[in-house]
């Protein structure tokens, strides 16, 4: 028996919007720790890891570990039927082949339940080692989204170069080239507006912009984004989900033959 009651149902709606274009089908894993997911895109270039900790739910009952295969497009269709202020409860029976999403309006005058068919998904689970990254950049998530969107109108790939001086995003295309440099800036009114660059050593990596743009669909989940890089390793783009956990995107770099 599984029953997870999330007061801020809009968080789950935003999570689905953030990942449904990257991943078609995924297993949601439920354990005493929380509600989580790890899934790769079809080309195995990008991976999303989601964690919503048990403590973040108003009620969290998970009698035994459960893995539920869901089509994310269908799940998104169902969650779009929940109001932004609704409380969302996820319910499933052990060994059942459906999951139920229950939506309660804030003043309890409307209660809906949507039952969705589960599916069997063979998913590869990758072991991601704990890594000390050589460059960690924290910046406003909207600024990061803006840069990725702007550069993708010029080129297909972005070179992200981080040094003590700042972080440079560069692209080249048929019509020309572009560079955006962000310097560390901590003299801001609100901490979420700061750009903070922690560097152990300079890092420069090249990535496909279409994946970066896809990751920025998580922007509504957090005011800030953290980009962690080491030379010759996948980048991690992390959006913290307040009080609950995180959504992390891993993207393999393009590397010279």
């Amino acid at each position: 028996m599984l029953e997870l009651r999330l007061l801020q149902g809009s968080l789950l709606k935003k999570v689905l919007e953030a990942i449904k274009d990257l991943v078609t089908d995924a297993n949601f894993d439920c354990s005493a720790t929380g509600f989580s997911l790890q899934a790769m895109d079809s080309s195995h270039v990008a991976l999303v890891a989601l964690l919503l900790r048990a403590e973040g739910f108003e009620h969290y009952r998970c009698d035994r570990n459960l893995s539920m295969g869901m089509n994310l497009n269908n799940m998104s269709k169902m969650l779009k039927c929940a109001g932004n202020d609704d409380i969302i409860t996820i319910k499933a029976d052990d060994g059942g082949d459906t999951v139920t999403f229950m939506f309660e309006s804030p003043n309890q005058d409307k209660i809906s339940d949507f039952e969705m068919k589960l599916m069997d998904i063979d998913s590869e689970h990758l072991g991601i080692p704990e890594t000390e990254y050589e460059a960690i950049i924290r910046m406003p998530s909207q600024e990061f989204a803006r840069i990725c969107r702007d550069l993708s109108t010029i080129g297909d790939t972005v070179v992200i170069s981080a040094s003590k001086e700042g972080v440079k995003f560069s692209t080249k295309g048929d019509i020309g080239s572009a560079n955006v440099v962000c310097r560390q800036n901590t003299s801001v009114d609100k901490p979420e507006d700061a750009t903070v660059i922690e560097i152990q050593q300079p890092v420069s990596l090249t990535f496909a912009l279409r994946y970066m743009n896809s990751f920025t669909k998580a922007t509504p989940l957090s005011n800030t984004v953290t980009v962690s890089m080491s030379n010759e390793l996948p980048v991690v783009v992390e959006y913290k989900i307040a009080e609950m956990g995180y959504i992390r995107f891993y993207l393999a770099p393009k590397i010279e033959e």
């Binding site: 790769m40 080309s43 195995h44 990008a46 990758l126 072991g127 996948p234 393999a252 393009k254």
Partner: peptide, 14 residues
Amino acid sequence: DLNQRTLADFFCTN
């Protein structure tokens, strides 16, 4: 030329 790597080049399968 740059080659797009996959995540399996960096992470191991459980």
